[in-house]
């Protein structure tokens, strides 16, 4: 009897311990998870981090949008931080006028859609050549392509400027379209690489069977390869479009005064503002430029791209998956 008591106590204690331990394990499993990545705590941390980083990421856009709706009073009032007292659309109206929006929008469209189409087709053509055929000098050419990727525009900009000037192409979209036709121009090295990687994933048997049916290389490319390469084509077209749209540096150089894209207009916003408002309205009603108006202009410039992104977001984001650009 005497000997059993302590052992019973021990048993109870042991039972207690194992129950506690099991309970503790359950909580731990619930909070931290079995694999280390499916627990509640970790999930909360992940969401919290993602949401806060996401907020920091979007902060400039939120700031810009809120700021652009502020009237002058709201802008000067330190108590008004995020939500303006009333939506003030005047800023947008002024920015619209200053940017000469319809005209600049048309110029932007012209200078991005046409080169993008040319680049999409020509880079596909060249990428197919690199992906499918062997010929002497191929590796050297690939080195040159990588070289064009890292060389800054500034190196070749001046000779190109003189070249385009000589042929009277300045002030038209031609300085962007012509190189694009020859698989050159903005970031074309990247596009050629995207296509090359993508075409390599297409099984060769498709082309071989077409070849047996007597189809030539061109026919195979346009009738078989292009139709099944829609993902890569869409990706390249979208990126080409966006990068051409955003191009400011060479756009202002090649297009000059005669044609101004939206980003170029933003560059000269201050001057344009003075011209638009001080001359026409005179001394009776002086309108001074303020941050809100400028940011309204910036919003207007981003808006077309934002709309595009909203609809084509899936394509943009899946660029790596769809085209296997990361190599292998």
């Amino acid at each position: 009897m005497k000997e059993e008591l302590p052992s019973l106590g021990k048993a109870i204690r042991r039972l207690d311990k194992s129950v506690v331990e099991r309970f503790w394990y359950k909580i731990k499993k619930f909070l931290l998870g079995k694999q280390g990545n499916d627990g509640l705590v970790l999930k909360l941390v992940v969401y919290a981090l993602l949401i806060s980083i996401g907020f920091v990421y979007l902060y400039p856009f939120l700031f810009m949008t809120s700021q652009s709706f502020k009237s002058l009073q709201d802008l000067l009032d330190p108590t008004v931080q995020w939500l303006p007292k009333s939506l003030y659309f005047d800023n947008y109206q002024k920015a619209w006028e200053v940017l000469d929006f319809p005209k600049a929008f048309a110029a932007s469209l012209l200078n991005s859609v046409l080169p993008a189409i040319a680049q999409t087709i020509s880079c596909a053509f060249v990428g197919y050549g690199f992906a499918r055929f062997n010929f002497p000098g191929k590796n050297l050419m690939f080195v040159f392509i990588l070289f064009t990727f890292i060389i800054p525009v500034q190196v070749v900009m001046i000779p190109l400027f003189l070249l385009f000037k000589e042929y009277g192409m300045l002030g038209s979209p031609l300085p962007f379209i012509i190189p694009a036709i020859f698989a050159g121009g903005i970031k074309s090295a990247l596009f050629i690489l995207i296509y090359t990687q993508f075409f390599r994933t297409i099984p060769k048997s498709l082309e071989e069977s077409a070849q047996l049916d007597g189809a030539g290389a061109l026919a195979i490319f346009f009738r078989i390869i292009m139709p099944i390469s829609v993902p890569a084509i869409v990706v390249v077209f979208l990126f080409s479009l966006v990068w051409h749209w955003n191009e400011t540096y060479t756009a202002s150089l090649y297009l000059g005064e005669s044609m101004r894209t939206l980003p170029v207009m933003l560059q000269t916003f201050d001057i344009a503002f003075k011209q638009a408002f001080s001359s026409s309205q005179g001394a009776s009603q002086t309108v001074n430029i303020n941050e809100s108006i400028k940011l309204a202009g910036t919003v207007l410039i981003i808006l077309p791209l934002l709309t595009l992104y909203l609809f084509a977001q899936k394509w943009f984001v899946e660029v790596v998956d769809k085209t296997g650009i990361t190599g292998e």
Binding site: F125, V126, G129, T148, I151, G185
Partner: peptide
């Protein structure tokens, strides 16, 4: 192969090599 790559070769010579 050369036929497919030709546009790039021309473009490279005209808009890259010569300017460089």
């Amino acid at each position: 192969g050369y036929m497919f790559v030709l546009p790039w070769i021309l473009g490279f010579l005209l808009f890259m090599a010569y300017p460089i």
